[in-house]
């Protein structure tokens, strides 16, 4: 499988402080990967090493087949970076369009292609009417959008986004997320996104990795992680008419569930090996004359998984 981001045994120290510890990770082509963890977990340091801004203390990082230590210029040519606090990294003495043009030219984008790309990005990010204004006059949200445009101006195969929606209000966050989703969908670009917003990762990412104290604790698809950490699954059962108490006692009497209770006019039970036990539970209820309208799993959010995996540590 094509793996444009390949991190092997990466350790990064600052003096006595170990920021990243023996991280092994591969991100596949076209994937949106979410790197989740509490503050100072090592997320940004990993991105900085992968984008050649910091040198690894041990281990290797290869981006699109180029080694960050041996071929840093080649690595930088194939990545786009939205750095941490990226909104504060624009040239206020240039206009928004000039900022993009400057970076596009540093990335060797041909002039005509660059002009089209700038217009396309400004239009897409709803910045077209501010193209000739200094970023110094922008709100944080607009600056962050411009940072995104800058990271994508050369259409790089690998994009690193460090907290792309931090410091944004909910509406602007949603717009930025929608933009990332639109860019990622159907493209071969690989997105590596650091965030501590779990809903954002759940919404955008194909796979996520949890990092805590510099160690990569878990990697997987959100659904896989849920299954892994939620062997005990919770179901909500809705009946056509009354009979909640009766249903509760029937479910309890089957001996198949770990717990059962009534919540908001529904019977809620916790069960293991749900695939085998749910049909038996429903059959028992139907045989007792109860009409089951709906049986729905209460799916734990990525936040629940996160809290279970590293909640105590953070």
């Amino acid at each position: 499988m094509d793996v444009p981001i390949e991190i092997k045994n990466l350790t990064k120290t600052f003096g006595d402080i170990v920021a990243v510890r023996e991280v092994d990770l591969g991100v596949h082509r076209g994937e949106v990967f979410g790197f989740l963890g509490p503050n100072a977990a090592g997320k940004s340091t990993t991105v900085k090493v992968a984008s050649t801004l910091l040198a690894p203390t041990h281990g290797t990082v290869e981006i699109n087949g180029y080694d960050v230590l041996e071929e840093p210029e080649e690595v930088r040519a194939v990545i786009g970076l939205l750095p941490e606090d990226g909104a504060d990294t624009h040239y206020d003495r240039l206009t928004a369009a000039e900022n993009l043009e400057y970076f596009g030219r540093l990335y060797d984008v041909p002039k005509e292609k660059l002009e089209n790309r700038i217009e396309e990005l400004l239009e897409f990010l709803e910045l077209a009417d501010r193209r000739d204004n200094s970023p110094g006059t922008f709100s944080t949200g607009l600056k962050q959008k411009l940072s995104l445009a800058r990271a994508l101006v050369h259409d790089p195969p690998v994009v690193f986004l460090d907290e792309p929606t931090s410091n944004l209000d909910p509406i602007m966050s949603r717009k930025v997320r929608a933009f990332i989703q639109q860019m990622a969908e159907g493209s071969k670009q690989t997105y590596f996104m650091c965030t501590h917003l779990l809903s954002e990762a759940e919404h955008l990412c194909d796979r996520v990795g949890f990092i805590s104290h510099g160690r990569l604790v878990e990697v997987g698809r959100p659904a896989e992680l849920r299954r892994k950490f939620w062997t005990q699954r919770t179901f909500e059962l809705q009946l056509a008419a009354t009979g909640l108490t009766k249903a509760q006692s029937i479910i309890k009497s089957t001996g198949l569930v770990l717990s059962v209770q009534i919540e908001n006019k529904r019977v809620v039970y916790v069960v293991e090996k749900a695939e085998q036990k749910n049909p038996e539970i429903v059959r028992a209820l139907v045989e007792a004359g109860l009409a089951v309208v709906e049986l729905r799993e209460r799916i734990p959010s990525l936040e629940d998984v996160y809290l279970k995996v590293i909640g105590g540590d953070s």
């Binding site: 984008s51 050649t52 970076l81 990226g86 990335y107």
Partner: peptide, 14 residues
């Protein structure tokens, strides 16, 4: 001081 050095250092400039 203005932190604009960060994206600049991430470009392919040697």
């Amino acid at each position: 001081e203005r932190r604009t050095i960060i994206p600049l250092l991430a470009t392919p400039l040697t």
